[in-house]
Design a protein around this nucleic acid. Structure first.
Lengths: 260, 260
DNA sequence: CAGTGGTCTAGACCACATG
DNA sequence: ATGTGGTCTAGACCACTGG
């Protein structure tokens, strides 16, 4: 508490608390205190003094160091969480989120071709792959009778360990009898398409809307529930106009840019 | 507590407070109190008991009626504001936002053709139309030398009085010598294009990203600052590939859906 | 167990808009 | 002058995570 050192990023256990020391926030200024704190922490992140993935000091320590109430501090922290710069884990701590500089997704291309992630490695994790009867929404999108068997695939895309995209894909099971066997080794849907004679397909329509992360989505994407997200919704057709894939998913608002 | 009335929307001055009466929120439930309040108010809005444009009771009254602290109540109200269901005006009150059911904007069409606003009338308000030297960003987008004269046009689109879209358009001034005269009567950019011999043009690229409303944008769009928004950014070219318009603007996240 | 973030209370003062 | 929403304080208890 009394050690006044130059803010070396990773001190032994103090989580770089010194970077926050000696600050004075003027209460009766034109800008609210919580916003001054927001600006300060945001500056630390942008300038790189707070490295991605590093942990912030505990809220009690921080509030004391900044000479404000924990509630006032939390107001600033929560805005930073909603904007995707921080992520909090209960019982653990608050961490600097790995902002992947915004991806650029171009419509009509394969996912991996789409990324222009600067220096970040892209990963895929398959959460679920099952065959089951189509629900009403799925049947509608794929133009099937309700109850027709479909293949459901849930995946996460990560950038440097950090999840940035969760999506669900639905396929007519009849067209892809060997889906699981072919998908398994490379986790590539395109491989599955090719192996079943679908060499060409096109995106019929893409819908982009906005929403707010459900508790489930928040947990998967390491977000605070209620954080704003993009929702994307698209159908792919084969060359004969038969729908072969309905995909819908969810991105943190600040992790992606769509280019058409 | 004892007045059990059907919530008639506009009681004499009580702002429909009765709709909030007699509620009990269990503190040690599995869901937080603020979220129970959120759910309750959201339900009132969705069911139409709280009409669009109507005013909520004051926070002090509401907090008393719901038997919670004003801070706890505010937590619920602020989430509703961020999600676009409520809008607060300092010194005035909190109002139910007119959710325009989400527009559908199709790329490459004229704006008015794009709307599928159900029963809402679309309005246009021109905030600014000036000629001035191009800044660096504008010069880059229009492929002009910095300082070249451009026409800058700022407009708001409204749906039933409520602003839903604010954007800025920039044009090379040299191509449109009579911009202002032609634009003025109908507020139509297409008219200006036609009058200057531009009968055909196409959208080169559209970029959609996410952000958070600046104080200026928030005021224009009747939002709370920091509310999540879509940002859209596009360039139109004439048939010879010459950029003739750079447009960028901002939508509340929950007011629009993009279809491509 | 100690430390973390999540929630909640009971007050208070301020800037702002309206009548 | 009144009522509004915006900000801030000084406490408190809880559920969760980790060692």
């Amino acid at each position: 508490m009394n050690d006044v050192k130059i803010p070396a990023p990773h001190e032994r256990g103090d989580h770089g608390l010194s970077a926050f020391g000696g600050l004075i926030f003027r209460p009766r200024s034109d800008t609210p205190i919580w916003q001054q704190i927001y600006d300060h922490i945001f500056g630390l992140i942008e300038s790189g003094l707070l490295q991605p993935g590093s942990q912030l000091p505990g809220e009690n320590h921080l509030a004391e160091k900044l000479a404000v109430t924990r509630i006032t501090l939390r107001r600033a922290l929560q805005q930073l969480q909603r904007e995707g710069h921080l992520t909090a884990r209960k019982g653990v701590g608050i961490f600097v989120r790995n902002l992947p500089a915004t991806f650029t997704v171009r419509d009509g291309r394969r996912f991996l071709d789409n990324f222009e992630a600067r220096g970040q490695e892209i990963g895929t994790r398959t959460l679920l792959i099952v065959r089951e009867p189509a629900g009403p929404a799925e049947a509608l999108q794929l133009r099937l009778a309700p109850g027709t068997e479909i293949v459901r695939l849930c995946r996460i895309r990560t950038s440097g360990k950090q999840p940035v995209y969760v999506n669900t894909k639905v396929f007519p099971a009849r067209i892809f009898p060997n889906f699981e066997q072919i998908y398994d080794p490379g986790q590539s849907v395109t491989d599955v398409f090719r192996a079943h004679g679908v060499d060409n397909y096109r995106r019929l329509e893409t819908r982009i809307s906005g929403g707010f992360a459900s508790p489930d989505e928040a947990e998967i994407l390491w977000l605070t529930p209620g954080t704003p997200v993009f929702r994307i919704n698209a159908v792919n057709e084969d060359s004969n106009g038969v729908p072969i894939e309905w995909t819908h998913g969810c991105w943190p608002l600040t992790s992606v840019e769509f280019v058409f």
